[in-house]
Design a protein around this nucleic acid. Structure first.
Length: 440
RNA sequence: GCGAUCAUGGUGGAAGGGUACCACGUCUCACUGUGGAUGAGAAGGCUGCGGGUUCGAAACCCGCUGAUCGCCCCA
């Protein structure tokens, strides 16, 4: 006998068992329907990309997390995709005939070699929706409105989409007078304001070699009331890019409101940064307060990305929803609908004995023909065992055909939840079942 | 990459240095036209891996690996 191979999973990756798949399918279904309702078309791209397609797009920190992939004898340097926006930009550059604005969604796994922890996996699904080919803030607002719609439809009550604009951050950098090399450190520290407070940020900035007066100067600025955008415009008088950013934000919020997004769901946060390097304009991030899990969605405008793959640059904006985080939160808050089935199977057809086998098989096939998901028993066991199986599987209905039923040309239809049994003719079973299932 | 905690059959837990138990689950049989029941039985662990201390280690010590949770960063 050969030694058993210990069954293990790569770090940070998991199997999604059938019951969990049903939850996922429910969430993905909602997301997909809303995406399409907003006019986005499906797109699929390979999980592997050429390394050169991905490198240099995300920033040095993120770049380290990309998985390399190569065939033993292959000549191409390949990598597992890190997100869906860069592949999209590649697709758009390769297919210039696509009608603009090009709106597509993609729900697919991406890989990041991070240290796994709560709400963080090395393989996870992103649900991306992006709009390529327009600079209008209406597009950004639509993305925000769509996030709002999806989360609301999934039953989320407490969530906030934080908004900022990279141009504001750029202006902030100019205003601080900090050397460009130190700017990433400045932004990163600033991003933690909510988490570690003013003093924490100051300490953090000092660690990042930012002079204390500069830190103070920047922090003072960020303490201007967000509600008073004019005060910000005033401060940015000499930094037109900042004014531009503020204007965009204002427009974005107004448009989103016009699309019915509640004001309390939007929060301008001029210290919110987001790590990916390719963002150029508005950036958004959705967080929930209850379980501490990081952001549920993240996105923004990346007007320069397509231009890296084509002479004809195109503006683009979009967002990504993290399905596993959404599921983790919904699980924790018990947000899944009570009637979410435990199995795809609608009905189980028992096999009474050898003589009745053909009848059972025929009934099962006719139920399938009618569009029902039906299962039959494979052996000749007592009804008790068969019912126990159906119950354990969570199958809602069972069809029983024994000698009595066969003689009367009917079947017994048992509701496993209530224990209720009725007799119907073989011709009616499918329709009766369909009605019952519809009502459930 | 850094830090903390943990590591016992599929799952959850017990065994205060002396031959590894319990529950649930799984499987089999009985109850032979009706379910998560009951009864009887079975399978399943070199106690994560490797060393050490000891007459003797699941337990104590060291190393490794893995998981979880933080940090960094992120969906």
């Amino acid at each position: 006998m050969t030694a058993i191979i210990e069954p293990r999973l790569p770090r940070g990756m998991r199997d999604i068992l059938p019951q969990k798949m049903l939850q996922r399918r429910y969430v993905i279904g909602v997301v997909e329907r809303v995406f399409e309702r907003f006019g986005f078309e499906p797109l699929q791209t390979p999980v592997l990309e050429l390394q050169q397609t991905l490198s240099g797009k995300y920033g040095p920190d993120a770049e380290k997390l990309i998985y390399d992939a190569r065939h033993r004898e292959g000549k191409e340097d390949l990598a597992l995709r890190y997100d869906l926006s860069v592949p999209l930009s590649r697709v758009v550059a390769m297919n210039p005939e696509l009608v603009k604005p090009f709106k597509r969604y993609q729900i697919a796994p991406v890989w990041r070699a991070e240290r796994p922890q709560k709400g963080r996996y090395r393989e996870f699904f992103q649900c991306d929706a992006d709009i390529v080919g327009t600079s209008s803030m209406l597009a950004d607002a639509e993305i925000v409105a769509m996030i709002f719609t999806i989360l609301r439809e999934l039953g989320f009550k407490e969530f906030v989409t934080k908004l900022n604009n990279r141009q504001v951050l750029t202006a902030l950098g100019e205003y601080s007078g900090v050397a460009p090399a130190l700017l990433p450190g400045l932004y990163r520290s600033l991003d933690k304001l909510e988490k570690i407070g003013r003093d924490g940020v100051r300490a953090e900035m000092l660690k990042n070699e930012i002079p204390d007066e500069t830190a103070k100067k920047v922090l003072d600025l960020t303490e201007l009331p967000v509600a008073d955008l004019n005060a910000w415009r005033e401060k940015f008088r000499e930094y037109p890019i900042g004014i531009q950013g503020i204007n965009e934000l204002e427009e974005l919020v107004q448009f989103a409101r016009e699309m019915g997004v509640q004001a309390e769901r939007l929060q301008i946060d001029l210290t919110m940064v987001r790590g990916l390097e390719y963002y150029t304009g508005p950036i958004f991030e959705t967080v929930v307060t209850e379980p501490k899990i990081g952001s549920l969605t993240g996105g923004g405008r990346y007007d320069g990305l397509v231009g890296l793959f084509s002479k004809n640059s195109l503006p683009a904006t979009g967002t990504s929803l993290g399905i596993e985080r959404i599921i983790d939160v919904m699980d924790e808050l018990n947000m899944f609908p009570a009637n979410l089935p435990k199995t795809v199977v609608d009905v189980f057809v028992t096999v009474f004995d050898v003589a009745r086998r053909a009848t059972s098989l025929a009934i099962a096939m006719s139920l399938r023909e009618a569009g029902l998901d039906a299962e039959v028993w494979y052996d000749f066991d007592g009804l008790g065992k068969q019912l126990r199986y159906a119950a354990a599987r969570g199958i809602p209905y069972v069809v029983i055909v024994g000698p009595d039923e066969a003689a009367a040309n009917v079947v017994t239809l048992r509701d496993l939840k209530t224990g209720e049994q009725i007799q119907v003719t073989r011709g009616e079973v499918a329709n009766v079942l369909k009605k019952k299932i519809e009502r459930a």
